[in-house]
Simulated scan of single mutants.
Amino acid sequence: MTQPPPPQYAAQPPAKDPAMVMGIVGLILAFFCAIVGLVISIIAFLKSRKAGFTNIPALIGIIVGILATVGWSIGGVNLGNVVAKCNELGPGVHKVDGVTFTCS
């Protein structure tokens, strides 16, 4: 009795990262709206990791989102300090401890 030929398996296409597009969107948004980009990048990174991929754009989006969020936070605190100082000093140009404040 002859044996049947072994089954032929078709080559599988390379697997695609299910969250690559989301990672790219998160990276782009991290430059313009840091917190939103950060959240989307984190979600994309976790989805990719769960599927067994490394989503580099999402990882970069996380880094940029964190740095931008910290930068905006520091800038907001400094702006708040300047506004408070101007409220204290009143309108005009004032020099305090070597720092010039121009208040309107």
Score class of each variant (00 low, 15 high):
T69Y: 01
A58N: 02
V93F: 03
V64E: 00
K50H: 07
A19R: 00
G80I: 07
V96H: 01
H94C: 02
G98L: 04
V96I: 15
P6C: 08
A10D: 09
V93E: 12
S41I: 02
F101E: 00
T100G: 08
A10R: 11
I40T: 04
N78E: 11
P4Y: 12
D17N: 15
I60Q: 02
V25R: 06
H94R: 01
I74Y: 10
L67S: 14
G90N: 05
A15V: 06
P5L: 14
P91T: 11
M1I: 13
P57G: 02
A15T: 05
A30P: 07
A68G: 08
K16A: 14
P18L: 05
P18Y: 03
K16F: 01
N81K: 14
P6D: 11
P13A: 13
E88A: 09
V82F: 09
D97H: 02
I40K: 01
R49P: 01
A84E: 08
G98N: 06
P13C: 09
A51N: 05
M20I: 14
K50V: 03
I56P: 00
T100Q: 12
L79I: 05
L89H: 05
G80E: 06
H94T: 02
A11T: 15
T2G: 14
I43D: 07
M20W: 12
G92W: 00
V99A: 07
I28A: 15
P4G: 14
A58H: 01
V83W: 05
P13Q: 11
I28Q: 09
G71S: 14
